[in-house]
Design a protein around this nucleic acid. Structure first.
Lengths: 149, 149
DNA sequence: ATTTATGCAAATCGTTTGCAAACCT
DNA sequence: AGGTTTGCAAACGATTTGCATAAAT
């Protein structure tokens, strides 16, 4: 996820915010930019420490706005801090998370299309059987990275 | 998960606590009992409101002890409150979670063995490719229950 | 001009901790 | 006795919110 896709991304974000009657302000651009440049989901404190022009309260509020508009996605790995990433629909990349139980770092990964398809088929069935409206699924692999042994 | 399996369960819990130099006290028994009778992962406030003899601080501390001994498992669905359930190793039942995005309720479900096996195979490969020691995986299906429309 | 967004500081709320009393073996 | 567990109340820390000011359309 470099910065090469920034133009389209910004247009998409602008459109989505507009559709939700929200403005694409400097602070929101900074957040989208930060998330686009991250290798994986990042915590709010990471975002704040990388861009000192961002205030804490506005960042929390803006991430909520962006999430509501379907632009970002909040994930909670275990406890610690919440993490954010650009939504699958925006990046057009369905992926999963490899979480280090030691330091909390999160890496992205994908599984083969056919396995993903089988999974979806089964999950749709499970949702229906329980009277749920299926929205999406989440597959996390919990382990320990090299550094955390 | 009725109460029929209580005797073996208590023996197993007692053994694990003992192995970790911890006592199987009244409060801890009450927690294991409460989790064994739940249909799915429950929040701490749910536990506390169901058994008024439990104090908040001891419950938090005891759940941490039980988790450390591999008896219970903490899960965080989105934000709200943390939820606890008996560990897969204790119930001998590997399952996944159907989470309602509206009210937060969590239901258990399983997927066919062959799909679970394929998934495991792929996840082991992913972990290795990223220098991770694979511990376990987590598959959540997020949706909305009938009540939350 | 009017509505929305910002940022500081104060408030929230789930969770954790200090400490003295109660418990177990 | 000697270590563990308990429970109250106070402390914590991430997130939220009130409110007056600044920015966007």
């Amino acid at each position: 996820m470099g910065t090469g896709d920034a133009p389209e991304l910004n247009d998409l974000v602008a459109a989505r915010l507009d559709a939700h009657d929200h403005r694409y302000t400097r602070g929101r651009r900074a957040l989208v930019e930060a998330l686009a440049q991250s290798a994986g989901p990042v915590t709010i404190s990471e975002i704040l420490s990388r861009d000192s022009s961002l205030s804490m309260s506005s960042t929390y509020r803006n991430l909520a706005v962006l999430e509501d508009a379907g632009i970002v996605h909040r994930i909670v790995t275990s406890d610690e801090h919440a993490r954010y990433e650009l939504d699958d629909a925006v990046t057009e990349w369905h992926h999963h998370h490899l979480v280090c139980a030691g330091c909390g770092t999160v890496l992205d990964f994908t599984i083969p299309d056919d396995l993903e398809a089988s999974l979806n088929r089964v999950l749709r069935r499970v949702a229906r059987a329980n009277g749920f409206t299926s929205e999406h699924h989440r597959l996390d692999l919990i382990g320990r990275c090299q550094a955390c042994g």
